[in-house]
Amino acid sequence: MDNSNGTAFLELKNVNKTFNLSYGEVTALEHVSLTINKRELVALVGPSGSGKTTLLNIIGSLDRPSKGEVILEGTRIDTLSEEELVHFRREKFSFIFQDAKPLRMLNVLENTLLPFNFFKPKNRNGNIRNEGIEIIKSLGLGHRLYHMPSQLSGGEIQRVAIARALITHPAMILADEPTANLDRDNRLFVIETFRKLSKEKDIAIVLSTHDLEIANRADRIVHLKDGVFLKDEAIACPPCKV
């Protein structure tokens, strides 16, 4: 496995995930081992039902593996209690969803600052509101600060989600099909933004996608099929391959 991009941030060891349903068991992941480094941009690629979402959930501590271990910076987190996990989620991870609906009754800036309705920002000097404004501006939404979500386009909404993900200074961003509903310009904007962020802000980013054009702009592509790794390929010069 290629760890050259940085130090190991998160490690999955032989993870299995099965869902118990009324009609039987569904295996979503089987023997998945994966290391994700700091500053790395990883694309999960695979057909629908291949286990991408399940894998992202397990990485981000939203779900627990049925078997195997999840190790974050040397600490095993899959055995922690729900209360302890809340802290990891607040401090380490940010999530971006495919259908990234911001809260309808909050404007762009308020949606960006939404996490701080639930906890206080840590290790900040400077005004959190100003930082939010800076982030929004850096995503090209400076003219939309006080607009409501209903006034925004799909691409703009996805940028609000990115802004919200960035405000907490996460160590890792997990994005489940973040480009699925976007046009090409916006898709490219999202992936390029991710690239920049991972390098400039030392954030590990894992996204899932169907789109090979997008995946090829990542540092690394992990191919999944039926819950099993097909291959884990490093992209030597990601943007050149396009």
Partner: peptide, 11 residues
């Protein structure tokens, strides 16, 4: 929405 709020750190 509840899932999103939980994911961004709501207990």
């Amino acid at each position: 929405e509840i899932g999103m709020l939980k994911a961004i750190g709501a207990s």
